[in-house]
């Protein structure tokens, strides 16, 4: 009996240690990246680094402004394309389609979420980039096709599975009575969706969008392959851009040979971690609260 008791104690201690690790991993990453980015923060203020547009690592000039603008713009384009499309698709799946079709589509959408980003990127290079180039040329722009717009389109496709699956779940969680009551008043199904469902599921739907945004914000390889990677602030959809994740991924090779370069890239990773972390925390807290409410 004593042995069994000790075994239980020992295992519990081990499991608690693993639990502590899980809870502290985010902070470990925060500390690790901050530690590495301290050398550059010691020399220049964060606001100067974020606000400056001059990116000349060999001369010790690290201005993140074009990269931050690139990240935000490519993400916004993706969201403008993805949010209405995905929400409409989610409404159809949640409210109009049969249960069987919804279940089948769930498998397909899970599959879509599991496709590696490098394959999305490859699709972008083969199909989207030439398409954007032709459209751009038809509009009278000199462009290679490797542009902000191409990155936005690919990201929109990549965030679709997240936005759809969370939205469908959120819409399904709205109580049946809400639908029945509004339909009993004689309004159409769409009117019920717009006036009742959207209203009662608004936090959940917003969370779905925020999760999509966070995913797009940190996506690396697929964007890197189609966005052109020119360190300048883009002025139109047909200009190349250079988002932060692409910056990190592209320059790991030379970062050890130029002073402060590695520090600057780790700061970029830290920015990504913080921004995406905050977005996720807000979205998940809203989703938990909804779960509890229902």
């Amino acid at each position: 009996m004593r042995w069994r008791y000790l075994k239980d104690r020992g295992n519990t201690a081990g499991m608690k240690a693993a639990l502590i690790f899980a809870n502290s991993l985010f902070f470990l990453m925060l500390i690790g990246l901050y530690y590495k980015s301290r050398p550059i923060l010691a020399l220049k203020s964060l606001s100067h680094l974020l606000g400056s547009s001059v990116w000349l690592p060999t001369q010790g000039q690290f201005g993140f402004y074009p990269f931050i603008v690139g990240t935000v713009e490519v993400t916004l384009i993706a969201m403008i394309l993805a949010v209405p499309t995905c929400l409409l698709a989610a409404v159809w799946l949640a409210e109009y389609s049969s249960r069987r079709f919804r279940e089948a589509l769930r498998v397909v959408i899970d599959l879509m979420a599991g496709i590696p980003s490098v394959i999305y990127g490859l699709f972008g290079v083969i199909v989207i980039v030439p398409l954007v180039r032709d459209v751009g040329r038809a509009l009278g722009r000199q462009t290679t096709g490797y542009t902000l717009l191409a990155g936005g389109v690919i990201l929109a496709v990549m965030v679709a599975p997240i936005i759809i699956s969370v939205s469908v779940e959120v819409l399904r969680a709205v109580p049946m009575e809400a639908r029945e009551t509004s339909l009993a008043l004689g309004i159409t199904k769409w009117a019920a969706v717009r006036h009742v469902l959207f209203k009662s599921a608004r936090h959940g739907l917003l969370s779905a969008v925020v999760l999509g945004f966070a995913r797009a914000f940190g996506e690396t390889i697929a964007v890197l392959m189609v966005v052109g990677n020119v360190a300048r602030v883009p002025h139109s959809l047909f200009d190349p851009a250079y988002p932060l994740p692409a910056l990190i991924a592209n320059n790991y090779g030379e970062m050890m040979s130029i002073p402060l370069y590695d520090s600057a890239l780790m700061l970029a990773a830290l920015i990504l971690l913080v921004v995406v972390g905050v977005f996720h925390m807000v979205a998940h807290l809203a989703l938990y609260r909804m779960e509890k409410g229902s």
Partner: peptide, 29 residues
Amino acid sequence: VANLTRLALDVLWGTPSIVYGAFGFVVMV
């Protein structure tokens, strides 16, 4: 505590893979 851990795991799930790469690099160094 369980709910807090779930939140921590959900946030980690959403963390971009390039950040894991960068952190892995820090650990390696």
